[in-house]
Design a binder for these strands. Structure first.
Length: 221
DNA sequence: GCGACAG
DNA sequence: ATCTTGTCGC
């Protein structure tokens, strides 16, 4: 797919904060995409050589049958360190490379990380979504910010994720007896819709099939 | 000032 | 994220 040249990448945390503060107003947390969804994509990262090389993988699956229809892989030097709250600046460059190689345009992208469940409401899913103006959902394996009540061990259980009195996402048990996932709107997808699609992409394991396929590609040697 | 801290 | 074998439990 064709991707427009994104904003200049920051070299410092101060510059990164300025970009986040500027882009946060562009995030849309309401459903704004065409249905029915035909394809869903998963994005994941891997690193080589002590983290000096970033590797991004994209997996496009048909929906709702979840069959892999296309994959792509991109490698490039890592240019930004991992700093909680600034993950997107480290990972998005390689992700854009991988997305450019894709022929089948997905209708929704599930990202590995938070959406608006972020200190400045611009986690990697929201940041990517705004940059490429596509529907995205944040699917994180652990908590960045916010608090929530304990949730039942059974699959499908969920609890709102609260930060500063605001619901920024949800904690969702995608499989009985395993650690929950942290779901949040990325861009152009509401929280309830995000939860719905995550569950529909997670028929058997803890993680959505999309990210499982992308994960396998990103970490394959 | 003291912890917490996506991948 | 990554380094890494076996092991516990459904």
């Amino acid at each position: 797919m064709k991707i427009d040249q994104p904003h200049a990448w920051p070299l410092t945390v101060e510059e990164a904060i300025a970009i986040q503060e500027q882009l946060r107003s562009q995030v849309i947390t309401e459903d704004k995409f065409k249905e029915p969804i035909q394809y869903v994509a998963g994005v994941d990262m891997g690193f080589e050589a002590d983290g000096t090389i970033s590797r991004a993988a994209v997996a496009v699956l048909s929906f709702p049958d979840l069959q892999v229809v296309e994959t792509s892989l991109a490698r490039r030097p890592t240019t930004f360190p991992y700093i909680p709250g600034f993950l997107s600046f480290r990972e998005i460059p390689a992700v854009l490379d991988a997305l450019e190689k894709i022929q089948i345009i997905p209708d929704i992208i599930l990202c590995d990380g938070q959406g608006i469940a972020h200190p400045r409401r611009l986690g990697i899913a929201s940041h990517l979504g705004v940059i490429i103006d596509m529907p995205t959902i944040g699917v994180a394996k652990s908590l960045l910010i916010g608090k929530h009540e304990d949730l039942p061990e059974t699959k499908g259980s969920l609890q709102p994720l609260i930060h500063r009195g605001e619901t920024i996402g949800a904690v969702l048990r995608t499989r009985t007896g395993v650690k929950p996932l942290y779901i949040s709107s990325g861009h152009r997808v509401s929280l309830s819709t995000a939860i719905d699609y995550v569950l529909r992409c997670t028929p058997k394991y803890r993680l959505p099939e999309t990210t499982r396929v992308a994960d396998k590609l990103a970490s394959a040697r």
